[in-house]
Design a protein around this nucleic acid. Structure first.
Lengths: 189, 189
DNA sequence: TTCACACTAGATCAATCGATCGATCTAGAG
DNA sequence: CTCTAGATCGATCGATTGATCTAGTGTGAA
């Protein structure tokens, strides 16, 4: 086996694109197999079932997102500087993880209870990261919200909505929208 | 016919609940028929096809939402007062239209081109309403964003995210979260 | 060489899908 | 009393679904 897990990776990559485009239920295992040129059996061999394939994609993406967000916001600096870095990094990463993010918020209701729980945990981890930073800001007193939790939800709303409406082919550049979104958040808290 | 369109309304109501719970693709026309106790044929008789049923629900809800938002924000007052009223009304209405709103943002990719376009138009109408108000605020000079469009997107992100995470059965009251969300938005702009 | 195992293909399964059919029922118009 | 339009029914269509089964591959260890 010169190229280990090549089929597995190809399946995951094709599935990512198809899930993002047509949704989980809207994509059949035959679509995925056909897109890779492999047979259906590979999906069941490598991922157990259709949901296993989705969860594998979600796991990889969310772990990477959380890790990179932690790294970026763990740099030295004032609480406000670190929080700003967190938001900016989140926006930038979401840009590269458009498809993954779309899957994330799309097909929750078609997952098994275990899959749903895993999905929820990934989202909660991101929320908690924001809550930590917001709590630090609140203790520093530079801030005018009462509940760090609600503030974290509001921020996630703005950030996640951004990857919903932002179109790279539009007239507004990513840097332009990203700066405006960041300022909205910084004023909001 | 003592009760005109009763079957039609019952179908739409059942479909609303099922679509919100399991998604459009995740709900079969058999599920809807079974939930109402009527036969499958009624759906095709009253709505043409499965998508027609969804679009009918979407149309009713979005027209009502837009109308009530216009009414609420057309009251006399300063631009800021009217804008605040708009946001508060939006939050309140979303609370009563939870299911409809969920459908709205869920299954876009499974619609026909015409259905997708209709869906997009409804969302654009809301966006434009916000842009009008934000433009008035910008001209009044009380505001620190550059693009009313981006600001409108940000606000919609916060409002729509609210109906995603807010749980009536949780410990936080609706009034509490609503106030906090509104303040976040008002500071953000 | 032999054996075990990871990997892959293709045929096939029962279940379910959206949609359509002709037939029947009901209510009101003329 | 007849005619018609709309509402509703159960049966059924072909297609597709996720999943499984069998039958091989090729590779590396013993």
């Amino acid at each position: 086996m010169a190229e280990p897990n090549r089929s597995k990776d190809r399946l995951a990559l094709s599935a990512l694109g198809l899930f993002a485009e047509r949704g989980f239920v809207g994509t059949s295992i035959r679509d995925i197999a056909k897109a890779t040129g492999l047979s259906i059996s590979n999906i069941y061999h490598h991922f157990g079932n259709k949901e296993g394939l989705l969860l594998a994609i979600l796991k990889t993406a969310s772990e990477r997102l959380l890790r990179e967000l932690r790294e970026a916001s763990d740099q030295p600096g004032t609480p406000m500087e670190r929080f700003k870095k967190l938001v900016q990094t989140h926006l930038q990463l979401s840009r590269g993880l458009r498809k993954e993010a779309k899957i994330f918020f799309l097909d929750e209701e078609h997952l098994s209870p275990e899959g749903y729980r895993a999905n929820l945990t990934y989202q909660r981890d991101i929320l908690d990261l924001y809550r930590e930073h917001l709590l630090a800001l609140q203790e520093a007193g530079e801030v005018n919200f009462k509940s760090p939790t609600i503030a974290a939800f509001n921020i996630l709303g703005v950030v996640n909505w951004h990857l919903r409406w932002y179109r790279p082919e539009g007239q507004m550049s990513f840097e332009e929208t990203s700066r405006e979104v960041t300022e909205f958040i910084l004023h909001g808290i």
